[in-house]
């Protein structure tokens, strides 16, 4: 039941990746990256349920926190032009 959902989320992630490549300005790319991170976290939880691997869900928690920090740092870089 879970594997088709994961494949569907991969298709969504591909559509978002096109925006990440096309985006005319840096904040556009950052919006794409932020959305992609959320989709990746959800698909990790789904894959953990599909294969009954608990470690995937743990990795999802850590990935969510780290991607949040990276988004904040890139936003700060766009705002000021330096770190």
């Amino acid at each position: 039941m879970w594997l088709p959902v994961a494949i569907f989320l991969a298709v969504c992630a591909t559509i978002i990746l096109i925006r990440l490549f096309l985006g005319p300005t840096p904040p556009d790319r950052l919006v794409g990256l932020d959305t992609l991170n959320t989709v990746v976290v959800v698909s990790m939880v789904i894959l953990g349920a599909a294969f009954e691997e608990l470690i995937y869900v743990d990795v999802a928690i850590v990935y969510a926190l780290l991607s949040f920090v990276s988004t904040l740092f890139i936003a700060k870089y766009i705002e000021k032009g330096k770190f």
Binding site: D34, T38, G48, L54, V57, A64, L65, F68, A75
Partner: peptide
Amino acid sequence: VLTLHAVIALVVILLTNPTSAHAIGRAA
């Protein structure tokens, strides 16, 4: 364990997603 960790991942998403949207809008 799967249930608890999935709920924790959901709480993390709920807390961080609006905050990063705010940061991106302000930076833009």
